[in-house]
Design a protein around this nucleic acid. Structure first.
Lengths: 141, 141
DNA sequence: ATAAATAAGTTGTATATACAACTTATTTAT
DNA sequence: ATAAATAAGTTGTATATACAACTTATTTAT
């Protein structure tokens, strides 16, 4: 029988979605190792990092910067507000609380360690490739 | 006040975890556009693809190949069994059902279109960088 | 052959994410 | 200034993921 002819000839290992997802899971695990002792997640830290460089942002701005769907962003922020790292005092503007700033400042050295560990695995070329791919996706999407 | 000195000097845009997560979200959205009409998710398709190239695998083998934590794998497989794309008839061995094979064979051309769209964005260099980074992470982790 | 040790599989729990549908706020025509 | 249109924010729902703790199956010493 010559059914399923595509299956025989295709190469699923090429799948960019599969490869990128695996890259994401493996690198996330490394970052988590350094970050989780602070009781914050990788995604949460990304948002705290963005907020640490902007005085105030509304949800739409944050979702555009983080490339996160607005409903995902909404719930991530809710957790950060519940943990008292982000303030909605000036709603709809969001800003880091003092606790949030202190946490970011404290985590940065550990984050650097995670960055170093990843760089040792993917190399400087890997790092600049990621940057390039990221830029292309940001600008062409 | 000279508190939070790290915040002033660090550059969160460098964060490899942040960049990779964003790359993952953006590329997943492109793949989803082609794949979701078949009522299957990107993660599910990855597992179906792997199974399509192996007669049988147990959960441990699949989780090693997919780099998925065993409990995550377990529940992904459960959904595929519920959809009748994977059979547990030979448990603990898993295998594609005929429906599963037919689905994979049908989706491959659409998957190719998704691959083409991503390649147009990240380029051939991007694609081979992803492959290289993926290899490094697989072998050094 | 059996006990002890290890591996594989399962379930509970929390967070992350997207999409659809909805509500509330803001902006734009008239 | 008000109505209509658009944008921002919220909630419901389903899937994805990891970690911890547990149970069941398999393997390894004795």
């Amino acid at each position: 029988m010559k059914e399923y002819e595509h299956i025989e000839t295709f190469n699923p290992k090429e799948c960019l979605s599969g490869q990128i997802s695996r890259i994401n899971r493996l690198t996330a695990t490394i970052f988590r190792k350094y970050i989780s002792p602070f009781k914050v997640t990788n995604s949460q830290l990304t948002l705290l990092f963005i907020l640490s460089k902007h005085n105030t942002l509304n949800q739409m701005q944050l979702s555009t910067i983080a490339k996160l769907e607005k409903s995902s962003l909404h719930r991530n922020i809710k957790r950060l507000v519940d943990s008292n790292y982000v303030s909605k005092a000036d709603f709809p503007l969001l800003q880091l609380t003092n606790d949030g700033k202190k946490l970011v400042n404290t985590i940065i050295p550990e984050w650097e360690k995670a960055m170093t560990e990843i760089r040792e695995i993917i190399g400087t070329e890997g790092e600049s490739s990621i940057h390039q791919i990221h830029q292309n996706l940001i600008s062409k999407t």
